[in-house]
Design a protein around this nucleic acid. Structure first.
Length: 568
RNA sequence: GCGAGCGUAGUGUAGCGGUUAUCACCCGGCGUUGCCAACGCCGGAACCCGGGUUCAAAUCCCGGCGCUCGCACCA
């Protein structure tokens, strides 16, 4: 940090000045943790999202869905967010410090997380817990610390309690049955969702890094945990990535490795997780993140979110240090099971064919209903169920069975011992989920930071270039008439009209101030190419094409230019 | 939430009881200029919000909001 801190401040000034990002509601004094994307930022964000989406969609078995941000309480209760978010905090009345109450009780109670607030307060008192900062024992009653924005569905007083979603993932889980049908039951498949998530942070800091409302992009990849995973990780054997494994797992040193090797060695516990790690790495590189400033850090066991069984963060280094920008978690079957448990739905499963059909021969004990019925009356249903569970080969008569403390005697003539053949072709199971979750705003910040260059020109003058990749920059081309006379502006506009016909190119006209200044302006906002109309253009219809990063210029005919733009 | 510092044009800043609120970049117009932030003229644009003290407040005091840093929090 240090010197970079000033650099990041200059970057922030630039971004605000040129309409990339700015604090939201500034006219009203601003609100911490909320940001606007401006005219250039809006387009940058769109481009990053488009690139992100295509990266996954083109795998062929990923679909995009969209679901509401307002989420009923029951959903978040089932997913564990309510429980996990209702941590309690205690304030020391003497020094005003605030601590998580369950953290204070660690070592004094074996599961402080399970206690409610009155029990927590009692425990604080019983164990004479001291304030870690001033050593007093004067605690105010504990308060819930819920980091979700709450709201009510329905305007009348009987409305349902709801929250703004803290992650988009639940939408994919709840849509699982529909996605399963879409893929006609063939795992693996995935769904993505791009949208806003909300966390009511206690004190958001660090500019764009910790926001209260932010752009998330999440992918839920549903897999059969028992099937072979044929990911061709060798494709990336040229690529070394930085890994920091979980220190509890033994192998804790930071290392540089191919993903393939890390999976082979068991450092990355799951092949699917490894595959998403390298695909994510690839995407970051394509978006313009400096890959030397990327590392993957494995979560320690106790750092892991309530749902995850293995988790790697992709961290990017910038002026705020190493920042978590993507989390790639193996959530196991946690979420689908949780929703299944609450809703009793049996749609949250997948079918797995056995490799070989199982022929099962059972010898069953089948009650003869015409005897059992009249004999046991209303109990017969219960008895039938019990008998059907028994292995027919091991029964000796008369058989005494106990159900709910009642005894029943079963005589041989009441049942029929039958051999039954059945064929089992497969079974139902709950799929596992691997989830790469992206913080789009954090990624955008680091794209901007890694693209931001302060170079000096001949006369030691500071010069700013935003080297955004072509595939995400807000403006692709700018056309500059050398002077706004002699028909140059007209030609410039003709060129613009022609190029606009080429698919999704954003092209811009700028005729004000000196040509050098216009180049500088374009470089500063990251426009990769400048097209200049000059005197020669008037004679032979050629223009110059200037490249942002090298400042090299080449002269092209209009046809060549159009061709260049089409390939761009 | 706590503590400290800070809040002046789009950006970066000067002023710290009485100024027409400084300077630079910037933005717009006109002129000039044969390609890398040129020049001239003209123009544009600010004291975070609310209250108080005072004859007089950008300046002092109080409260709010915001920013930065430290502590705490960050599933």
């Amino acid at each position: 940090m240090g010197a970079d801190e000033h650099k990041s401040r200059r970057l922030m000034s630039l971004l605000k000045k040129r309409g990339y990002i700015q604090p939201a509601f500034e006219l009203y004094g601003g609100v911490a943790g909320l940001y606007d994307y401006g005219p250039l930022g809006g387009r940058l964000r769109r481009n990053v999202i488009r690139k992100w989406l295509n990266h996954w969609i083109k795998l062929g078995n990923i679909v995009e869905i969209d679901s509401p941000t307002i989420t009923p309480e029951a959903v978040l209760k089932a997913s564990g967010h309510i429980g996990a978010f209702n941590d309690y905090a205690s304030e020391c009345k003497s020094c005003n410090s605030i601590f998580r109450t369950d953290h204070l009780l660690e070592g004094f109670h074996n599961n402080p997380d399970s206690l409610d607030n009155t029990a927590l307060d009692k425990e604080l008192l019983n164990h004479d817990i001291q304030c870690p900062s001033c050593n007093k024992t004067d605690w105010a009653p504990s308060e819930p610390l819920n980091l979700m924005f709450s709201t009510t569905i329905g305007a009348s007083k009987g409305g349902r309690r709801a929250f703004m979603r803290p992650e988009t993932a639940q939408g994919m889980f709840l849509q699982y049955p529909s996605i399963y049908r879409h893929f006609r039951g063939k795992l693996p498949f995935g769904a993505v969702q791009i949208g806003k998530g909300y966390r009511n942070e206690i004190s958001p800091r660090q500019g764009m890094i910790r926001l209260r409302e932010f752009n998330m992009a999440e992918l839920e990849y549903f897999i059969d945990p028992e099937s072979n995973k044929n990911y061709n990780l060798q494709l990336w054997d040229e690529v070394l990535v930085n890994l920091i494994p979980d220190p509890m797992g033994g192998d804790s040193k930071e290392l540089s490795s191919t993903i393939n090797e890390a999976v082979e060695k068991g450092i990355i516990r799951d092949k699917t997780v490894g595959w998403f790690m390298i695909k994510t790495y690839e995407l970051m590189s394509e978006l313009g993140i400096n890959t030397e400033l990327i590392r993957f850090r494995q979560h320690e066991i106790d750092e892991m979110a309530h749902y995850a069984t293995d988790c790697w963060d992709l961290e990017i280094f910038g002026c705020y240090g190493w920042i978590e920008c993507v989390g790639i978690a193996n959530r196991g079957c946690y979420d689908l099971k949780a929703h299944q448990k609450v809703t009793k739905s049996n749609e949250l499963k997948a079918w797995r064919d056995f490799e070989k059909e199982l022929e099962i021969e059972k010898v069953v004990c089948s009650p003869i209903q015409s005897i059992v019925g009249p004999q046991f009356k209303d109990k017969s249903k219960m008895i039938t169920a019990h008998l059907e569970e028994l292995n027919g080969l091991e029964i000796e008569f008369p058989l005494t069975i106990n159900i709910n403390r009642e005894q029943f005697i079963i005589e041989e003539h009441m049942v029929e011992i039958k051999k039954i053949k059945s064929i089992e072709r497969g079974e139902w199971f709950t799929p596992h989920v691997v989830e790469p979750a992206f913080g789009i705003d954090r990624i955008i910040w680091h794209i901007l930071e890694h693209s931001y260059q302060e170079v000096s020109k001949e006369n030691d003058e500071k010069y700013t270039i935003l080297s955004l990749k072509n595939n995400i920059c807000p403006i692709d081309f700018s056309v500059y008439p050398l002077y706004e006379k002699d028909g140059m502006p007209e030609i410039a506009h003709e060129i613009i009209d022609k190029i606009r016909e080429v698919n999704e190119i954003n092209i811009n006209y700028d005729g004000s101030k000196s040509i050098g200044r216009r180049y500088a302006r374009g470089d500063e906002i990251g426009t990769p190419y400048a097209i200049t109309v000059d005197h020669q253009t008037l004679e032979d219809k050629t223009v110059t094409l200037r490249e942002r990063d090298t400042q090299n210029q080449t002269r092209l005919s209009l046809e060549e230019l159009v061709q260049f733009v089409s390939k761009y």
